[in-house]
Design a protein around this nucleic acid. Sequence first.
DNA 1: CCAGAGACCGGGAGCGCTTCCAGTCCCTGG
DNA 2: CCAGGGACTGGAAGCGCTCCCGGTCTCTGG
Lengths: 345, 345
Amino acid sequence: MTSPTGRQPTLDEVAKLAGVSRSAASRAINNAAHVSAANRLAVERAVRELGYVPNVTAQALARQKVGAVVLAVSDHNKELFGDPFFGQIIAGVTAALEDTDLDLKLLLCHPERGHDRVRRMLRPPRADGIMVMALRGDDPLQRMVEKSGLPTVYGGLPLHGQPEWFVDVDNRGGARVAAEHLVSLGRRRIASIAGPADTHVAVARLDGFADALSVAQLDHTLVEHADFTREGGAAAMERLLEREPGLDAVSVASDNMAAGALQTLLQHGRRVPEDVAVVGFDDLPIGHLTQPSLTTIQQPIRSLGYEMARLLLAVVDGEKPSPLLLPTRLVVRESAPARVSLAAS
Amino acid sequence: MTSPTGRQPTLDEVAKLAGVSRSAASRAINNAAHVSAANRLAVERAVRELGYVPNVTAQALARQKVGAVVLAVSDHNKELFGDPFFGQIIAGVTAALEDTDLDLKLLLCHPERGHDRVRRMLRPPRADGIMVMALRGDDPLQRMVEKSGLPTVYGGLPLHGQPEWFVDVDNRGGARVAAEHLVSLGRRRIASIAGPADTHVAVARLDGFADALSVAQLDHTLVEHADFTREGGAAAMERLLEREPGLDAVSVASDNMAAGALQTLLQHGRRVPEDVAVVGFDDLPIGHLTQPSLTTIQQPIRSLGYEMARLLLAVVDGEKPSPLLLPTRLVVRESAPARVSLAAS
DNA sequence: CCAGAGACCGGGAGCGCTTCCAGTCCCTGG
DNA sequence: CCAGGGACTGGAAGCGCTCCCGGTCTCTGG
């Protein structure tokens, strides 16, 4: 009833009702300068009366910006979709966008299909900026993102190249702490189950593992790669046991894989943590359920999303913010408790 | 280099290069009628040469549509964010949108904060249609969605009201099958851990439970509610054991809660499935990890997303599609195996 | 008393596209 | 041979907003 026509009221109608020009109304609404107090008030009243909401599309066209940012994710990545990661990232991003009036668009990129769609989407002016996550080594998404020329923030580093803006978790540091924990427990034959070699996160965690073992002057070559899934972790554990039946600890690059490794260890009659201590990475809910519960490295997933979005907002505003490295934290549970006497072998 | 100016080429430039009017170019590009074969070809070449991509914003303004749909989710809902649900829904939706040139916007609605943001977003013309999920009983999001007047598809029914278009999982049927399974195992004192009473999904699953027990002429009032979390499930199981120490089966409305219930049962010295058989709901990965593994009801999450989007597309196109109820399936694992002799009590 | 600096105002030209419409042209059937 | 119906064409009017800019008005300081 408030709007004369059935459609949404337009700026013109507001201006007319307020008795000012459209320009003045526009200024008042975007509270820019050069509007008298009286007119500002009149416009505000008209806005309220009509229930006026600016037409974002028209704004976008006139301002030459879109009013939306996109979160692009490679969806071959079990890492994000088998886990609760995704929801948390989104929650963080949303929180950062909360008082921004920017919309969040989602772009899932199948590595093979849907390239056209991605390309169209990334082509300006379909978004004002882009957050990109979970890239693989030679991900076509990365190229498309780079070609788009849009302000871009990486969530987690890509394998190749050093982007100007990114937010990452301190994977290397976290993995180092995990391995140090095992060393401090007196373990000497320490293996690792690493992630896929074509992801930066896997490489960084493996580096951290190597860092710690090198300092302790231990061998750090007892490594098997897997794909971040439970099944993959179980299989990798099999291979490790075959290579080195006498291993007394294993640092696993994800909780999912650690859960699989745990199963394999138990199947092979190893007691955890007495015979083999295990630490995971991620701190997923799953870590509470394994038998025994999982010592792991906690990473701030929600913050990752939040900081990505904040960084992007800054970049879009023309600032030159610094990249961010978020801290991790050791969470000690049963699979590698603080002090446990090494079982006599 | 292809574009004369640094900016994206416009339709005018395409038309000029092709030697036709802008109208003709537009028609050719949207392959509408009334374009000669020659002109169509010329336009296509010009498009290719210039690397022209239509400006969606301008299209949106002229066409009076946005070119995007929104997925709105209430984020108080652990159900979606503690689980891998979310990623799968998104994957399904994306698949359905794949060859549509519609963008997917995401709207997370904190039940208390951010109402303005939601309202702005839902106000046309910020999206052409809306999918809404995970509503609670008196969810403000539902009111806002209804007031928006946008074509709406519900993913999962709301507690109140019967929306014209929805896609839901056959929760009632699934829960009935779960309970029937327990009955068929010879269990007679069957309890249930239900979800929050202010969600339709919880109510439906509880109804299904009651359906089955009524047919079997068993008491179906041994019910405790919880919040779909593991901790909640564990606590509810405590209460059930207190009320009825002699229960021999429990049907749990989610795998997460079932995992918690399992822990409680073991703590109380109950053997599963010998003393108490347990079935969950959802078929999350977690069900493989519990000790024993979890018999559960599988629901097609990805399909839910896919069908929601398909339905929405139909509605947006002015069709009147039918709502959908997706089937569930019993997955038998250790916590309630096909045949197990009831332990002598 | 007057020049000049602001504050404020509204007209109007876009932003890039769609779409209506009046006008051509050609080709058919009577 | 001619009327009439398509197929095709391009001009022009939007879609709803922003923002530049020339203009008015007021107030200050010299």
